[in-house]
Design a protein around this nucleic acid. Structure first.
Lengths: 164, 164
DNA sequence: TACATTTGCGTAACCAGTTACTGAATTAAA
DNA sequence: TTTAATTCAGTAACTGGTTACGCAAATGTA
């Protein structure tokens, strides 16, 4: 493959992560498009949540997925436009939007699920030769969560200065 | 942490990859901003390439980094605006833009390199408890390169249908 | 009870990438 | 040698995410 970013080892990792994540994203979009499904990547997560919980609010979803709330607003607006999600304002707390799956969504779910199952299988295939990947990836996430790139780098910078 | 995406195992992986990649990206931007450096994430890759090769074209860089060429055009335009890169059209092939680092860039490089070294140290720290990560990540990249998510999922879909 | 603070969510502007298209220069082929 | 095909780079429009800001509703407090 002769990949410059791979040769860079630690330096290239961030870009490689983005490259892989983008590649999966665009490929998923293409898959749905070519198969004529009017859904998008990530929607499966919302579908799963709304199946499990019946009703949820924007904030609940954004906290569960650890997305910013405007991101969830955008996704939900698209799903409303496509007729997969309905909203009504909570009568007790009029700030809240109660989200539910529509009849149409429930009807189409079995079809969607075929694709999601195949997709899950793909991820399993991709990970087949990388038995420690999920576990080690989680460790990285936890570390970043605990202290992010900026904090860590500033600390390293300080340490380097002291080492004269 | 109680992360829904992690609980989803294979289903959540794509989103987790994006989450981590975004987190690193935004954190890097913030670092440079807070330290008053007028550079951006990824520019280090261009700097390294232009140090190693003296001159390169847009296409050469986009192939080396495996970015689309419009992405490189955008980055280079910013770097030109900041006075770190100069361009001139190749006299032999007037389509090509010859890119070089400016005097200013060379002058500032030692400062930048302090930050890049500290950043590389951060990535090493993040990977410290994940000794197989780079190796296994590479395997995933190679697999995706060889046959992407869409292709694999369509194949899985077909297999599932046959298994009635 | 009035007022300050917090919360929920919508909008705007931005960001780093993508694909699709274009035009000009080069190269290949008739 | 003319014409067709390819290549290089730039622009436009879009994507899924982000932060920053504002408004209205709910909650806490003097």
């Amino acid at each position: 493959m002769n990949d410059f970013l791979t040769e860079m080892e630690f330096v290239g990792l961030t870009s490689r992560l983005k490259r892989l994540s983008d590649s999966l994203l665009y490929s998923t979009k293409e898959l749905y498009k070519s198969e004529g499904l009017d859904i998008e990547p990530n929607w499966n997560l919302i579908f799963i949540l709304l199946q499990e919980n019946e009703t949820m609010t924007i904030t609940e979803i954004s906290e569960t997925l650890q997305f910013s709330h405007p991101a969830v607003v955008k996704i939900i607006n698209k799903m409303k436009k496509n007729g997969h999600v309905e909203t009504r304002t909570d009568t007790e707390d009029k700030r809240k939007q109660i989200l539910t799956l529509t009849e149409k969504a429930h009807k189409q779910l079995p079809v969607f699920e075929k694709y999601w199952t195949a997709g899950r299988q793909t991820v399993m295939d991709l990970l087949a030769d990388s038995p420690n990947f999920l576990e080690e990836f989680l460790k990285i996430e936890e570390k970043v969560n605990q202290s992010d790139y900026k904090e860590r780098t500033l600390k390293n910078l300080k340490n380097d200065e002291h080492s004269y």
